[in-house]
Design a protein around this nucleic acid. Structure first.
Length: 300
DNA sequence: ACTCGCCTGTCG
DNA sequence: CGACAGGCGAGT
């Protein structure tokens, strides 16, 4: 298959809409969204053998080598689906599949007769008629197959900090708070805590009443503890809601019966809107190339 | 500790 | 059309 050739559905794609029997997708996958995907896929993936692989040799952040996927994933049985930060690892008997959804990635469970969404780069057909599809329009994602022993040495995984929900968020933040960087940069550093993106970093700072611009080393230990608690709180709330939805349908299933609710965001994307605390306008400022949203009155 | 590059879809 | 969205690695 030539570079860039799209994967063709057995029946032609119908564009947008509820083309898959079960779809889990999100606009900006951070920890809660990735964990929701993990929980959704796990019962269908674990214990099942891959009977066929279709892979498109597309350039991702870490790309798809079709021959690799076929040689090492075809025929293997998945034994576990694990999340580390924003990464998903499908452990197999002989190989492991490592995924990162980047900005626009989705892992979708579909029946094999259903048409492919645009930008479908990888299809793992499972025993029982379902298949896992990796879709990533902007190709910031990762879909790579590794030897099980190579997981520990994978640079992106090896550097990940603790899980902010299950691990010691306060300890990690305290250790990282010697930095002179703005605190939001510390929160986004996956070596400090694994799983926060720009949305939840901003939301946690709003909840803790700390400005995203504040230097990390200028935050009192007590407020750092409050920030750690806020991080856990926003992530847990998002997990309970099934992840954040921004523009598109977010988490949708074909029946359209939802079951998921968009997380209410206090500051992210709300420039100019009134702060729930003081009524003042929420401000957007570009910090290290990314938007920071905050209330200048409530967040110091 | 910053900027850039990678990508495409959406919006003004 | 340009601006923007941003995770993350590389470069400076």
């Amino acid at each position: 298959m030539p570079w860039g050739a799209p994967l063709r559905s057995r029946s032609r794609a119908s564009g947008r809409g509820p083309w898959a029997c079960m779809v889990w997708s999100t606009a900006m996958p951070e920890l809660p969204e990735v964990e929701t995907v993990r929980r959704s896929l796990e019962p269908h993936l674990v214990g099942r053998r891959v009977v066929a692989v279709e892979a498109r040799p597309v350039r991702l952040r870490e790309g798809i080598e079709p021959a690799d996927w076929r040689a090492r994933i075809e025929g293997t049985r998945f034994t576990a689906l694990e999340r580390r930060g924003k990464y998903l690892i499908a452990h197999g008997e002989r190989a492991a599949a490592l995924f990162h959804l980047g900005m626009s990635g989705r892992l979708v469970l579909a029946r094999s007769q259903e048409p492919f969404a645009p930008h479908t780069h990888l299809v793992l057909r499972l025993e029982g008629g379902l298949e896992v599809r990796f879709i990533d329009p902007r190709r910031f994602g990762v879909a790579v197959v590794l030897e099980p022993g190579a997981l520990a040495a994978h640079p992106s995984l090896a550097r990940l900090g603790p899980d902010p929900v299950r691990g010691d968020a306060e300890g990690a933040l305290t250790a990282a708070a010697r930095s002179r960087s703005p605190i939001r940069s510390v929160l986004l550093d996956q070596r400090v805590l694994a799983g926060l993106g720009n949305i939840y970093a901003n939301e946690a700072l709003a909840l803790a009443g700390i400005s995203p611009l504040r230097r990390a080393d200028a935050i009192a230990p007590r407020r750092l503890a409050a920030l750690a608690a806020a991080v856990r709180q926003v992530l847990t709330a998002a997990l309970d809601a099934g992840g954040t939805t921004l523009r598109d349908g977010g988490f949708v299933n074909a029946a359209g019966d939802g079951g998921y609710f968009a997380v209410k965001l206090a500051v992210y994307g709300r420039e100019g809107q009134p702060c729930a605390g003081c009524g003042g306008a929420i401000v957007r400022r570009v910090l290290a190339g990314r938007s920071a949203f905050y209330c200048p009155r409530c967040q110091r």
